[in-house]
């Protein structure tokens, strides 16, 4: 059984249809990437899964349970965490408090402390910035915090929205390596939305190409990376 199954999902913003019937499935343990141009609907898809926006048709099924249009706070409790577009760090809270908020639905303090240490071992920079307010972090540090904060719910599935956006190439490489580590070591399944198709296809097992609200292509990450049209459109090759 797939961990996440999206069937014929449609989302509208007023009169504009952002998703025109998207179906994808994510197998447990995988990194699946969703690539596509700006405005293709990638972030919309993640928002519809995590409950930030309502779908007008179709279903989202997680671990066999229909979670379509559940409020966001209940989706988190079921095991899906979303590190959203723009990171949405609480600038008025300290790094520590940001991470603690990530674990909001959980009660076991011992386990939360253990996970906090785990986030710090993945992102040592956050440990140095422990007491600083989230608003004082650099873009890259904020991205680490957004991923770390999403991990703090101990989700079975992580939705990552453009972790490479606005970050220098060296840091992008490091963050992608960490994403692989989170997937392999902690067994979290990852749905990664990216414009940086090159990097994303390198770490993913499976990929989807989203074009103006519908899936244009899907396949193993290797096949997509070798596809002629994709190389021209997304990987910057002539």
């Amino acid at each position: 059984m797939s961990l996440l199954e999206i069937r014929n999902l449609q989302v509208k913003y007023g009169a504009i249809t952002a998703l025109k019937g998207v179906s994808i499935s994510v197998e447990p343990g995988q990194i699946v990437t969703m690539i596509g141009a700006n405005g293709a609907g990638k972030s919309t898809l993640l928002r519809a899964v995590s409950g930030l926006i309502k779908a007008c048709a179709g279903n989202v099924v997680f671990e066999g349970v229909d979670i379509t249009n559940l409020p966001a706070h209940r989706v988190v409790a079921l095991g899906i965490s979303h590190a959203p577009e723009g990171r949405m760090i609480f600038a008025n809270l300290s790094v520590r408090e940001n991470l603690e908020m990530g674990a909001y639905p959980r009660a076991n303090k011992g386990e939360i402390g253990h996970d906090l240490e785990r986030v710090f071992s993945l992102f040592p920079r956050l440990k140095e910035r422990f007491k600083q307010s989230g608003g004082t972090l650099s873009g890259g540090e904020q991205q680490m915090l957004a991923i770390g904060r999403a991990m703090m719910a101990r989700p079975r599935m992580l939705l990552l929205d453009e972790p490479s956006l606005g970050i220098g190439p060296i840091l992008v490489k490091a963050i992608f390596e960490t994403i692989v580590e989170i997937n392999r070591e902690l067994g979290m399944t990852i749905l990664l939305v990216e414009q940086n198709a090159h990097q994303a296809l390198k770490i993913a097992q499976y990929g989807y190409v989203l074009e103006t609200g519908h899936i244009a292509l899907e396949g193993s990450a290797g096949d997509i990376a070798r596809n002629e049209q994709i190389r021209k459109a997304y990987l910057g090759e002539a």
Binding site: M88, F90, M101
Partner: peptide, 15 residues
Amino acid sequence: RAVSYNHRAASLMGI
């Protein structure tokens, strides 16, 4: 304090 900063981000935390 999280909600006062950003409702959507807070709801993504499970609040």
